[in-house]
Amino acid sequence: MGPIGLQHYLVLGAILFVLGVIGIVSRKNAVGILISIELMLNAANINLIAFSRYSNKPIFPTTMPEAAYMDGQVFAIFVIILAACEAAVALAIILNLFNMFGTIEVDDADTMRG
């Protein structure tokens, strides 16, 4: 085992992504699925930040030298904000679902029938 490098982050990201996919496919609880989605998004975030750190290509070398190497990290911040918005809307809908059906199991065909 050498020092921690890019491939460690890649493996971590891939594992989290696969766990997220498994979670979505196997879970029925809406909050559980939401957490799995967040896991997938954050797996991608880890990759973005790692690549941003380890890549050596400045994006705007002439116009904005201080912003070089940053675009992956900026993208990750966007993803975090958008995931938060999505979670806010999702939780609002899930709360209403619970009030109406008394359950948040999403493919419970009998209880969820209109």
Partner: peptide, 20 residues
């Protein structure tokens, strides 16, 4: 919401790899 989130996950992970 759940399916579009799932799809966004794939899309974003693909983007991360392309960026890499």
């Amino acid at each position: 919401l759940l399916l579009a989130g799932f799809a966004s996950g794939f899309l974003l992970f693909g983007m991360a790899l392309i960026y890499a």
